[in-house]
Design a protein around this nucleic acid. Structure first.
Lengths: 178, 178
DNA sequence: TGAAAATAGTAAGGCGGCTAACTATAATTG
DNA sequence: CAATTATAGTTAGCCGCCTTACTATTTTCA
């Protein structure tokens, strides 16, 4: 699997070289960082593979879910960008591909000439309807080896992590909406 | 921050719609998946921002570290691809940019006409030398609010996660080397 | 009401992943 | 030794993310 982090053997040599060279080399912190990054990539990778079963990505899936389950919401690219926390340029790209694949349609908004109304097409609707049960069944399977106590253990650790890590991500320069 | 996962409010509505529609909707699993994904993205995001201070990415940093700390290794694109767990095409891209930026040089390998020897340039060496102390100082700072017990708690949770999630990522089709 | 400002959407171009297909060189083997 | 096969590296092209810059429309407000 992709990781960008050297394997155990190389890492060991690397760290020993670094510890001679960097004053107060914080072995635990570096090791934890490597573990965190690998674990994060692994998680994302798992879901990427999962969605790839249907030719989807996280972003494509998110858009389809919103259009399918909240159709009364009169979705536009900007609304989708807000709801999924990506830039509107990213939504343009996702919508381009979803529309090329015949899953969604763009229509002029009746009230506002700047807006575009996004809707699931007939085949898009059928597609989502078909994948939803499989998707949620599989998601449920992922954790079938964990008991409630273990799930809580993971949730607690994530919460702890979040509290520590958020301060580090203070200055946000990206063009997210809202 | 980017997430591709709807915010709390939208998620709540979404889940309630889904639970009416999907038999045995596993609320806990879906919620945990969302939390895992968000946490993973946040972690990766933190390190991306961190490396961006020096115009680096995880991949660029990994390559620079290997060339700098293990120069006796006679690095080639394939070796870097193995060591960093990405495809050789990805290494070509990273090497292109690092070399464009003047940090590394490509040289014909003396023994094997197919190979390319990669080395840090003078300025690359200076650059790495300058960033290393800052980098490791900041990495150490990230966890300064955690005590040993909390670090252990996170490590244990990551290990647990890994055990659960690895089975899901069985079939790997990508062109990784080795 | 007419000019300025805000908003919606897209396009162009960059980065970092990927695959597939290609060239060149080396190694193997019949 | 010649032919096949394996290896090293690059290229081309796709996806999803980003920023910047643009057009078109709407809203605001002097």
């Amino acid at each position: 699997m992709k990781s960008l982090i050297p394997n155990e053997a190389i890492r060991r040599i690397l760290f020993s070289k670094l510890s001679e060279q960097v004053p107060n080399f914080d072995f635990a912190a570096v090791q934890l960082s490597a573990q965190l990054l690998m674990s994060s990539q692994q998680t994302i990778h798992l879901f990427e593979n999962h969605f790839a079963q249907w030719g989807l990505s996280q972003g494509r899936f998110a858009i389809l879910m919103l259009l399918y389950n909240l159709p009364e919401n009169d979705w536009t690219p900007v609304k989708l960008a807000e709801a999924t926390c990506v830039t509107k340029a990213t939504v343009t790209g996702l919508v381009n591909n979803l529309s090329r694949d015949g899953y969604i349609t763009r229509q002029q908004h009746p009230d506002d000439g700047r807006k575009i109304s996004l809707r699931l097409s007939e085949s898009g609707e059928q597609f989502v309807q078909g994948m939803i049960p499989q998707h949620f069944e599989q998601i449920s399977q992922i954790y079938s080896n964990l008991d409630g106590q273990q799930i809580k253990q993971i949730c607690d650790a994530l919460t702890l992590l979040q509290q520590v890590i958020i301060p580090g991500a203070e200055k946000e320069t990206k063009q997210y909406i809202e």
